[in-house]
Structures are given as C-alpha cells and as structure tokens.
C-alpha cells in the first residue's frame, strides 16, 4: 500500500485540492482519493506532485508492507 503526505504538504503550502489538481493536470476528485489512500498514482503523477512541492518523491510517497 502506498501512503502519502500530500495533505500535510498542501497545508504547509496553504494550497487547496483544486489548485494542486490544476497544477498537475488532474481532477480534484483524484487528489481527494489519493490523499485518502484509495488510489495509487502512476509514477508520472507522483513525480509531478513531488515537483510541485519541490521535494523528492520518497518524501511524499512511502510504500508500506
């Protein structure tokens, strides 16, 4: 299962789901489902999200056994 800290990073940057969705080219629903762990992103989307927050991917996404 892939865990993520998107919500935490959004709060840090005071960014709404809509804004992040727009910047990475997806819908707000996708970001919402990602945050709740109901959807595993593709590598490209994960990389784009990490780029928005200017951190390496592994700082936002971690794999839990």
């Amino acid at each position: 299962m892939i865990k993520n800290r998107i919500k935490e990073f959004r709060a840090r940057y005071d960014m709404k789901q809509e804004e992040l969705a727009k910047r990475v080219g997806v819908r707000r629903e996708t970001i919402g489902n990602l945050e709740k762990g109901r959807y595993n992103p593709s590598l490209v989307l994960a990389w784009n999200i990490a780029k928005v927050f200017d951190v390496p991917i592994e700082e936002i996404f971690t794999v839990e056994e």
Partner: peptide, 9 residues
Amino acid sequence: RERKGAAYD
C-alpha cells in the same frame, strides 16, 4: 465511489 472518497478538505 470516487466522489465519496474525494471529500473536500
């Protein structure tokens, strides 16, 4: 299901 899982923050 998608809408249910995408609650606003």
